[in-house]
Design a protein around this nucleic acid. Structure first.
Lengths: 207, 207, 207, 207
DNA sequence: AATGAATGAGTCTTCATTCAT
DNA sequence: CATGAATGAAGACTCATTCAT
């Protein structure tokens, strides 16, 4: 009897090599500027082997994208059970998000730069993920209201959107585009801005 | 009286035909998925004619991008002379921005979706434009502080960034991604959120 | 009555402008690397005007070639009437040829470098011209025999061919390829070589 | 015994198929009139396959040219070791050269007709080869002087050039242009012409 | 399972030529 | 006559995908 080859793991590891190589390449260049050949080379496999594990370049791109997105989305997965404070949770999210961006500088380019307009399926998936994210945040803010930390007269959906934009556009661009060395202290400032607004105390606001 | 044919503009109009066709196509698909032939057809001219007016497909893309960006950037050109109120100016910006997005739904997709990674020159131009935008907004907020509307203890740069994100990501995504029929009333809500923050009145915040 | 415009000369001069521009360009680059546009520009006329005077680029090339060849071929047009000495005539030809090459360095490149393989008609014309040239030279050598200067036991055709090669390949390459500053003194050496051969005196040769 | 299939050469043979097809085509038409598709078809391979073996059409042309030139240049590789007679060596060269021309009628057209003006690298290589050829011949003639066959008062370089022209232009044109059935007997006549010159015995020359 | 040689569909770009003005 | 804007045929080259080994 022939020795049992652990095909499952062998394959999975080879598949992973290819996937990681693809992610690296897609992060570096446009979809149309990455060639299957160079992915294969980076993965250290033959060109034909890529097609053993992925049906097409497009498929490989989708999986690369989802892989990166998956890493990213964890940040916002909040556990509401026994949530003590919305503000503190938000602070945690900001910190986690910042670290994630710093640690995955390169990987995130894929998420922010590639908008595969013709991959409708993937487009839909992205929208869906964003919607879920917004739902999480809406829940978080509602919880804040219940806890008495957040004012109850605001539009919860908008507040969630602004918090998302705070994370993605504001922090994202500070770190990735402007190369500002953002630290926790600055996150506190940002959260304060978000929490208290820019206007002079609301007390006098009405007058 | 016979209609006057504006011969002068005939040429310019042919160039414009091509440019508009290109914008349409680039909004619809990736740079690499749009063919020059397709643009020529949509513009109603021969393929060679495209090259009479634009030296290459890349050049045509850059001009399409700049064209869209140009339309967009007007929104933020603020005149500080005799600025009466930062808050009212911000309201104006939000309204103008919203209208612009609504009127140019399609055109703006290009700005937000295409990030031509290999067009370094264009990349640099985009960064430069964004920086100018942030400067305008920083100026606006500083003016608000001078006028006593905005609290003086905040980080002006961050406030500017958050206001930009409010416009671009929050409003942009509501209109373009989620197809929400945003009206002026909602802009007020958004501005209020930005102005006063989400927390309970700062007065009580400390207690 | 309208003033009489001297069309004949006007045309001829414009035609010449174009022809000279074409010659210049064809001397500089391959047929396929010269564009009609650049010929028109150099001639200072519109692109369409070229087609007023020449039916096609190919036609224009043929005329350019013939023009250069015509200049060249004069060198060998010998007047046999009252020919005093074949040797002196040959010396004259060498001198004339050398001067021609020096004076028309550039123009001659066309003759030597362009061999329009697909212009059968032109090919035939070239062969015909070469044949005529050889006939002239054969006549010259025969005359030399009649005058008792040239030995009568040689193959007149071959002698003519070698004299042509002496002019074209030997002198041509010395001047045009190797940039040797050939002077009349050296032509004498060459003619001596041709006249007396390289072997030790014929007297001993037979022994 | 089953025929051994030489797998090793299979690859080389595919490259050769393409090279030979290219040579055939380039001999038939100008560089710019030969299409890669046409070469691929003649070679019996796909268009893409050409680019597997040659990086560009230009590269393919260069290799075709060098290939033909390589065949040609062998003729003049002379072994001076124990050279018995310059005259006999020259006779050998003429014979070899003639046979080569006859056997490779077509291949040599490429060498004589195509002067790729824009392939500077190739141009340089050609000049270099010609220079080496002249050096060989200069050496041969000097040897002739040492052996007492050749007169010592001549310009060795010029003599070498004339001998080269004798081979290339005279014999070349007789065979290739004028379709004369040149035989060894005629080569003797030619060599005699070169050796003794056309003039009456040098002895009487001065008188 | 793994490979990479072979393929040809698809694209940008050039440029001779035409023709309306 | 003179022009040059418009054209589209033609060709080099790329690269995702296949398939024989």
């Amino acid at each position: 009897m022939a020795p049992v080859k652990n095909n499952k793991n062998q394959n999975s590891s080879k598949r992973d090599q290819i996937l990681h190589a693809a992610v690296d390449k897609f992060l570096e260049k446009d979809f149309y500027q990455v060639t299957v050949t160079e992915i294969a080379e980076l993965a250290g496999v033959g060109k034909g082997t890529v097609y053993e594990y992925f049906s097409s370049k497009e498929e490989l791109f989708k999986e690369s994208f989802s892989y990166c997105a998956g890493i990213y989305l964890q940040t916002f997965k909040i556990n509401f059970a026994e949530l003590a404070s919305a503000r503190i949770t938000m602070e945690d999210i900001l910190v986690t998000h910042l670290n994630l961006i710093k640690e995955n500088r390169n990987k995130l380019h894929l998420l922010f730069n590639e908008r595969p307009q013709n991959l409708k399926e993937l487009q839909a998936w992205i929208l869906e993920q964003r919607r879920e994210l917004l739902n999480e945040l809406t829940g978080l803010i509602s919880e804040g209201i219940r806890l008495g930390e957040v004012r109850s007269d605001l539009n919860v959906d908008m507040a969630a959107r602004l918090f998302l934009a705070l994370n993605q556009q504001v922090i994202g661009e500070m770190v990735l585009l402007d190369n500002i060395a953002v630290e926790e202290a600055q996150l506190k400032e940002l959260l304060d801005l978000y929490w208290n607004g820019i206007g002079k105390s609301a007390l006098w606001q009405g007058h």
